[in-house]
Each structure stands twice: as structure tokens, then as C-alpha cells.
């Protein structure tokens, strides 16, 4: 239980950084940390005690895999989620560059003030 709870604490850290910090790059870092925490949480739920990776090798029996292999489904979903996170991060960075070009600062409150 304490493992799940600590992962959620990491998640909350990321969301706090996303809300309370003024620098846009800090906000991107917060979103990245949130991403890590969610991925880790999903993999933690799929772990099986004394588990082995869900990969068949030549010197393994089928029974060993079915009895000890960890859950392959969360691993497959997280695999796609990590690469999607990279795509989202690069798009956010692009938006940041355009904002910097227009307002000459990464400071969020400054941008709000200049706009109004």
C-alpha cells in the first residue's frame, strides 16, 4: 500500500509544480514528473510477486511463464504512453518558443500582464 501512496505523492508534486510555478519550463517539468508517476503506478499494479518478465526464452517451460510472468497488458499500454509523452512535450516546447518570440520572457504572470 505504501508504494502506491508514495507514487501518488510524486503525482501530487508534479501537479503542484504545474499549478503554482510561474516559469513555463517549470510547468513542463511538472507535467513530465506527473507522466512518470502515472506510468510507474500502472506498472506497479501489474507486478506479480517473484515475477519474471513476460518473455519466453528457449530454456523455459510454458508453465513457468504462465505461473510467474508479470502482467503484459499494462506494460504494452505504458510503452505507447511514454512515447506519446515525448510527443506532447515537444509540442509544448514549440508553443513555449513561440511565446518567447512574442513576449521575450518565460514568465507566465508577465505574459498575462502584457496581454491585458
Amino acid at each position: 500500500m505504501i508504494l502506491y501512496f508514495l507514487t501518488l505523492v510524486l503525482f501530487v508534486m508534479g501537479v503542484y509544480c504545474l499549478i503554482a510555478k510561474k516559469n513555463i519550463i517549470k510547468k513542463i517539468i511538472g507535467l513530465t514528473i506527473t507522466d512518470y508517476a502515472i506510468n510507474l503506478f500502472i506498472i506497479l499494479i501489474g507486478y506479480r510477486a517473484n515475477g519474471i518478465a513476460p518473455i519466453m526464452f528457449k530454456n523455459m517451460t510454458m508453465q513457468e511463464l504462465t505461473e510467474r510472468g508479470v502482467d503484459p497488458l499494462p506494460q504494452a499500454l505504458v510503452l505507447t504512453s511514454i512515447v506519446i509523452g515525448l510527443g506532447v512535450l515537444s509540442m509544448m516546447t514549440a508553443i513555449c518558443l513561440r511565446l518567447y518570440e512574442k513576449y521575450k520572457t518565460f514568465d507566465m504572470s508577465e505574459i498575462n500582464r502584457l496581454k491585458g
Binding site: 506510468n39 513476460p54 508479470v70 510503452l79
Partner: peptide, 10 residues
């Protein structure tokens, strides 16, 4: 956690 695929990607 026995997930080498994701460890490499991460």
C-alpha cells in the same frame, strides 16, 4: 518490476 521493454524506452 520485471519490465525490461519499458526500462529501455524510458
Amino acid at each position: 518490476l520485471a519490465a525490461p521493454d519499458i526500462a529501455i524506452t524510458q
